[in-house]
Simulated assay, not measured.
Amino acid sequence: MDITLARTFLEIVASGSFVRAAENLHITQTAVSARVRTLEEHLDAKLFVRNKAGATLTHAGEQFTRHASMLVQVWERARHHVALPPGRESVITIGCELSLWDPLLLDWLLRMRTSAPHLALRTEVGLSHDLIERVAAGTLDVAVVYAPQLRPGLRIELLLEEKLVLVTTRASATLHPEDYVYVDWGPEFAAQHGLAFPHLVNAGVSAGLGPLGREYVLAAGGTAYFRLQVMQKYLDSGRLHRVRGAPEFLYPAYAVFAEGADMSVVAPALEGLRAVTQVAPAAAVAPVAPDVTRPSPSA
């Protein structure tokens, strides 16, 4: 079967619409419909029911979803195997969300270099939605993201229960709005931050990337929210201080991989991620939306 048919089917499932699938695939809606008809002829079953709201799966379509995902993954795995570097048995490709890659990806690469020398390593950084789409399409083995959406055929495992804390270069450890730096940690953080600090919505300086905001604050001084584990060394050295009484925001990291993934390749990658995030192996869990919690008086 033409692998393009399976990819088109999965895109319709993900977008819920022939129209949106055509836009995402950069083809006409007529081409999408033609591919679905060809696929239905191959399977001798109707896969979608189309209506004004979009397209919903039939029972046969639901049954085929997992197989389509596996077809794409097997094809992509075969392509990777054909072009293996000398001395490597397989390839593992991992993608990390922009706000989470530093220092996780470097730590993972260093560990995998010694713990899994038989694997060729590929790393990428991108947006959560795009990374998860690629896992579903079979072009990415593992995605590390903050707030993954559940999708058919994918597994989600909690890696790190990180939190965002307010830190400052001021020895007084108090918040001064004039030197506040807003770091964009995503829409969930933005919503909760707006409720907690409505007067800081329009900060004088904003950074769309955590490492950029961190280096700015360390160089110029100021106050901002950062991931606690990344900033702990600066807190320990006294270069930064926790702002007293400031709320904390949960910022967990999840690993997303396909149910039908080749675990001989994915398992070592997950073990490496657990090791560098210092989390013991756990069962796959559903994502939990971040929440605002108040630190204890001693925090």
Rank of each mutant, 00 (worst) to 15 (best):
D2S: 09
L5S: 00
A6M: 10
A6N: 11
I12D: 03
A14E: 12
S15M: 12
G16Q: 02
G16S: 06
S17Q: 11
A22G: 05
E23I: 05
A34M: 07
R35K: 15
T38M: 03
V49L: 13
R50S: 13
K52F: 12
A55S: 14
A55E: 10
H59D: 14
G61C: 10
E62G: 14
L71Y: 10
V72R: 15
V74N: 08
W75Y: 15
R79T: 01
R79I: 02
H81A: 13
H81R: 14
A83N: 15
G87Y: 08
R88K: 15
E89K: 15
E89W: 04
E89M: 07
T93G: 01
I94N: 01
C96M: 12
C96H: 08
D102F: 12
P103C: 04
L104I: 15
L105H: 01
L105Q: 13
W108S: 04
L110S: 10
L110A: 12
S115P: 02
L119G: 06
L121V: 06
V125T: 08
G126F: 05
G126A: 14
S128V: 05
S128G: 05
H129C: 02
E133Q: 15
V135E: 08
A136M: 12
A137W: 04
G138H: 06
G138W: 10
D141Q: 04
A147T: 09
P148D: 10
P152C: 07
L158E: 12
L159T: 03
K163M: 08
L164R: 00
S172A: 14
S172H: 04
E178S: 14
Y182A: 04
Y182G: 04
V183C: 11
D184Q: 06
A191S: 10
A191I: 11
Q192F: 02
Q192Y: 02
L195P: 00
L195I: 05
L195N: 06
F197V: 04
V201Q: 12
N202A: 06
N202Q: 07
A207V: 09
A219F: 08
G221F: 07
T223I: 06
Y225K: 01
F226A: 02
R227D: 02
Q232E: 14
K233G: 04
Y234I: 02
Y234M: 04
G238Y: 07
V243L: 06
V243F: 09
G245T: 03
G245Q: 10
P247R: 07
P252N: 13
V256Y: 01
F257K: 04
A258V: 11
G260L: 10
S264Y: 07
V265Q: 04
V266F: 10
P268D: 07
L270V: 06
E271M: 13
L273P: 12
V276S: 05
V276T: 06
A284F: 00
A286V: 03
P287S: 09
T293V: 15
R294G: 01
S298P: 00
A299V: 12
